[in-house]
């Protein structure tokens, strides 16, 4: 049944949104982590989304005019290049010589906006899934109404 490929694509989207939610949760939970295992403040993470199509697939499709389809979006977790937030706390054990503590550059406002976007995108994937499912169920109703 070909409709299951739609389900797989939706599942890939849902996996991605779940991953983004996990990264946001990690960022918010570590918003005040001043020292990690490496002695540095926590580096905020971000998910970079790329198409699941490999370069080989792209070349194959270009030569043969299609045939291979990527397996949906693939998210990669990378550290965001955000400068740390400097707070003057001279008594803090992680303070530098000038008394400043480097907090992770996690922006709670943008993380909240990202949470909303992730939730909506997940819902959109679920909606696509439900649309495919109801189309398949409708197709199975063909011819069942006659007496």
């Amino acid at each position: 049944m070909d409709i299951s490929s739609i389900f797989d694509i939706s599942a890939a989207g849902m996996n991605l949104e779940r991953q983004r939610l996990e990264v946001s949760a990690l960022n918010l939970a570590n918003a005040n982590t001043t020292r990690g295992a490496d002695g540095l403040p926590f580096a905020p993470l971000q998910v970079v989304v790329r198409s699941g199509m490999t370069p080989f697939d792209a070349v194959f499709n270009a030569v043969n005019g299609g045939g291979l389809s990527g397996s949906g979006p693939v998210g990669q977790v990378e550290t965001a290049d955000v400068p740390p937030r400097q707070v003057y706390e001279p008594g803090h054990p992680d303070a530098d010589a000038n008394g400043f503590v480097s907090y992770p550059g996690v922006n709670p406002v943008s993380e909240m906006v990202r949470l909303i976007a992730v939730t909506r995108a997940y819902e959109a994937n679920v909606r696509v899934f439900n649309a495919g499912r109801s189309m398949a169920m409708k197709a199975l109703e063909i011819g069942s109404g006659r007496s």
């Binding site: 599942a11 849902m14 996996n15 899934f129 199975l140 069942s144």
Partner: peptide, 26 residues
């Protein structure tokens, strides 16, 4: 812990079963 994967598998099973049931009905 992947809830949506479980739900999608359940739906796939449901749809396949429905198809076979419809064929049986015919």
């Amino acid at each position: 812990t992947n809830i949506h994967q479980v739900m999608i598998s359940l739906e796939k099973a449901h749809l396949s079963l429905e198809l076979v049931m419809q064929v049986r009905n015919k």
